[in-house]
């Protein structure tokens, strides 16, 4: 039983446009592998239960709690972590709107909002709120985060 728990395999993951290899246990979550094997510690273990969103990464562009997906399940998918987010518009919006205090929720939020903007560039307040529901920020009271999202959406429309 204990030995089975340790059973694992060599996998290749496409992370941030790079192919990375690791020997993982079958039961390792993607969050664990990102942090412990690849040093991609921007994904945070806030609850390991899918409740707080701090470990959010993009899997094929969709925000996923990386504590809720096994590393072996991530094979064949395109994974983006905060370290690989090269379009820094939303990061700059977070900085410009003071949407960061302790910063622990920030990577998860930024990836979540990045996906929102890519998927629904015309998102209204209701949709923004719905997307923001999946994450917890314990410091800001959310107003600055909402402003960062709205200002980014507005800026995109002006630029179009």
């Amino acid at each position: 039983m204990i030995q089975n728990m340790q059973a694992g395999q060599l996998i290749s993951l496409a992370i941030n446009d790079q192919v990375k290899e690791a020997y993982v246990r079958n039961s390792d979550t993607l969050l664990y592998t990102l942090r412990e094997q690849f040093g991609l510690v921007g994904a945070k273990p806030g609850c390991n239960n899918g409740d707080c969103g701090s470990c959010t990464v993009l899997v094929d562009g969709i925000p996923i709690n990386s504590c809720h997906i096994l590393s072996v399940e991530a094979v064949g998918h395109k994974i983006t972590t905060i370290e690989g987010l090269t379009d820094s518009t939303i990061q700059q919006a977070f900085i410009g709107n003071w949407a960061i205090q302790c910063g622990y929720c920030t990577p998860g939020y930024i990836l979540n909002i990045y996906a929102l903007i890519q998927t629904y560039p015309d998102a209204d307040d209701a949709m923004i709120n719905e997307w923001l529901e999946s994450n917890i920020c314990r410091c800001t009271g959310y107003q600055e985060i909402k402003e960062a999202v709205k200002n980014t959406l507005i800026a995109r429309k002006i630029n179009e």
């Binding site: 942090r35 820094s88 960061i100 910063g103 930024i110």
Partner: peptide, 21 residues
Amino acid sequence: VPRVDMPDKAFGRTKYTNDVT
């Protein structure tokens, strides 16, 4: 004055206590 700790936090570069292996 912009907070000095914000840029690294926005880019996932800030290392908290348990972010070292």
